[in-house]
């Protein structure tokens, strides 16, 4: 098993290199170092010398991929690509264009993101499974039919409407919670209630429908019929057999998401003024701070790959028949 994990980690390296090359190429085609300098220096009284100085100070005055002037290894290492990208592999993100340390920023912004993402994830999971179980229990009745209709309707509404509606009613009209903002520690609760509710509500439609499908698939298996034939009550069958067995696809589906929770939610964080990683990314995109965007892309890829690995591992834990070759 350790050998398997090692191999998977090694396999991740070419993928991360690929990610790096793609993002690097994309961002430097978009934004030449001149652009970055101009944006950072503002509009008033900018001289070409100031631009050059800015570039030199941040190491953007080197060639992109190959440094023809240097000798030996420096031909490849004394370039923007090497300086800016390879360091990502040891999670040294360097400084943003505004001079702030990206690693420090990620470490501090991670917590608000998690404070929002984890409740949304866990509560969402619980609510969706409960709702889906109810639909499965009442399958083939009008309750199931209308439940599915509600699900489809809810998933046809853009997230933006949930957020706008929630803020307008709950915060503005009814004055129940602060409309936006964040505070660390226990004070965070009053800021997080609304975004969490909105996040959960936005996910009910598709989540419940998906779990309902899984349950129904399980209900039609032979062992469930056998159990039912033995005279077990419907509820017992549902909880003892169906839920237990359906947990495998549910959990493995959920595990893949866990690492990406770190990345936060772009839209929700922005609207509610939560200073997490999601709003960090949006800020960076809008300010065209590509040092940040590149770091976040890298981080996102690493977490995604981690998620895949965790999924595979969780398969073995819930289903001992799966063996690693």
């Amino acid at each position: 098993m350790i050998a398997y994990i090692t191999r998977r980690f090694l396999y991740a390296i070419p993928i991360l290199i690929g990610v790096n090359v793609i993002t690097f190429a994309l961002f430097f085609v978009v934004n030449t170092p001149e652009d970055m300098a101009n944006l950072a220096l503002g509009a008033k009284r900018v001289t070409p010398e100031a631009v050059e100085r800015w570039k030199a100070e941040r190491g953007y005055d080197k060639p992109l991929f190959v440094n023809a002037e240097a000798d030996g290894a420096a031909r490849l290492t004394d370039t923007i690509f090497f300086q800016k990208s390879i360091r990502l592999f040891v999670f040294d993100f360097g400084n943003a264009d505004d001079g702030r340390n990206i690693g420090h920023e990620i470490r501090t912004r991670m917590w608000p993101s998690l404070a929002l993402a984890i409740p949304v994830f866990l509560i969402g999971l619980a609510v969706n499974i409960t709702f889906a179980l109810m639909l499965a229990f009442f399958r083939a009745t009008y309750i199931d039919f209308w439940g599915v209709v509600v699900c489809v309707a809810m998933m046809s509404i853009s997230t933006l409407f949930y957020i706008i509606g929630g803020q307008y009613l709950v915060s503005k009209t009814w004055s129940l919670v602060p409309i936006s903002g964040y505070a660390p520690g226990i004070d965070a609760a009053k800021f997080l209630i609304l975004p969490v509710v909105v996040g959960v509500a936005g996910g009910i439609g598709s989540g419940s429908r998906w779990y309902r499908t899984i349950f129904l698939e399980e209900i039609n298996r032979d062992y469930v019929r056998t159990a039912r034939a033995k005279g077990l009550s419907e509820l017992t069958v549902l909880f003892r057999h169906v839920l237990k067995n359906a947990m495998i696809p549910i959990l493995t589906g959920a595990v893949v998401v866990i690492p990406t929770l770190f990345m936060g939610s772009l839209i929700t964080e922005s609207f509610f003024g939560i200073p997490g990683l999601g709003s960090y990314v949006i800020d960076a995109i809008q300010a065209q701070d590509f040092a940040v965007v590149r770091s976040m892309v890298f981080l996102g890829s690493v977490l995604y790959i981690l998620g895949l690995l965790l999924t595979d591992l969780s398969y073995t834990l819930v289903d001992p028949r799966v063996r690693f070759e």
């Binding site: 993928i15 690929g18 990610v19 793609i22 993002t23 994309l26 961002f27 085609v29 978009v30 934004n31 990345m263 772009l266 990314v281 995109i285 065209q288 965007v293 976040m296 892309v297 996102g300 890829s301 995604y304 790959i305």
Partner: peptide, 18 residues
């Protein structure tokens, strides 16, 4: 796998700006 592992929104943002 490589394309998938890049967060979609960021890839889109970069490409659209380009």
């Amino acid at each position: 796998t490589t394309l998938n592992s890049i967060p979609g929104v960021l890839l889109i943002a970069a490409a659209v700006l380009m």
